[in-house]
Simulated assay, not measured.
Amino acid sequence: MSAKTISIIILTALLTIFLMVNTDPVDFDFLVATVPVSKLLVIGVCIIIGFIIGFVVGRPRKTLSSYDDDIERKAQTTDSKKELSDEDRDYIS
């Protein structure tokens, strides 16, 4: 197993242990009422929301320059595969 896999397994085990230890009820204030909720649920929901936000914010996005690079790369491959005919050159100019 790789070091990355082992570290993910260890972190998941520690997170699970941490959540299982914190099962005490806490008062959670909604708009009008106070509801007793398990710490496990509150911490778990916060962790899941954090992972989702981190994934959405941290993923690479296509920028305008990366589209330009794709267009240039496609143009280079098409130029190397086939050249324009004389008719096409006359039509373009």
Rank of each mutant, 00 (worst) to 15 (best):
M1L: 11
M1D: 12
M1Y: 07
M1W: 09
S2W: 04
S2Y: 11
K4E: 15
I6R: 13
I6W: 11
S7Y: 13
S7W: 13
S7A: 15
S7F: 13
I8F: 15
I10G: 07
I10S: 08
I10T: 10
L11T: 14
T12I: 11
T12E: 08
A13P: 05
A13D: 11
A13L: 15
L14A: 10
L14Y: 07
L15N: 10
L15T: 15
L15Y: 11
T16I: 12
I17N: 04
F18V: 04
F18S: 09
F18W: 08
F18C: 09
M20G: 08
M20L: 15
M20Y: 12
N22T: 09
N22E: 12
N22V: 06
N22C: 08
N22L: 07
T23I: 12
T23W: 07
T23A: 01
P25M: 08
P25D: 11
P25C: 00
P25S: 08
V26R: 06
V26Y: 02
D27S: 13
F28K: 04
D29H: 14
F30N: 05
L31W: 12
L31Y: 12
V32T: 15
A33N: 13
A33C: 10
T34N: 05
V35M: 12
V35H: 09
V35C: 08
V35K: 07
V35A: 09
P36A: 05
P36M: 00
P36D: 01
V37T: 06
V37E: 06
S38V: 07
S38D: 06
S38G: 01
K39Y: 02
K39H: 06
K39W: 05
L40W: 12
L40Y: 13
L40S: 07
L40F: 15
V42K: 00
I43L: 10
I43F: 09
I43G: 03
I43M: 06
V45Y: 03
V45W: 00
V45C: 06
C46S: 15
C46E: 13
I47G: 06
I48L: 14
I48W: 11
I48A: 14
I49P: 02
I49E: 11
G50W: 08
F51A: 11
I52R: 03
I52D: 03
I53P: 00
G54I: 02
G54Y: 07
G54V: 05
V56I: 11
V57M: 09
V57R: 09
P60E: 13
P60H: 10
P60C: 06
P60Q: 11
K62W: 12
L64V: 14
L64S: 15
L64I: 14
L64R: 13
S65W: 08
S65L: 11
S66R: 05
Y67M: 05
Y67I: 10
D68W: 12
D68C: 11
D69G: 08
D69P: 02
D70F: 00
D70P: 01
I71E: 05
E72H: 07
E72A: 04
E72M: 01
R73N: 02
K74W: 00
K74C: 01
A75K: 01
Q76E: 10
T77R: 04
T78I: 05
T78K: 02
D79H: 00
D79E: 01
K81Q: 04
E83P: 00
E83A: 02
E83M: 00
L84Y: 04
L84A: 04
D86K: 07
D86V: 07
D86C: 03
R89A: 01
Y91L: 12
I92S: 04
S93F: 10
S93I: 10
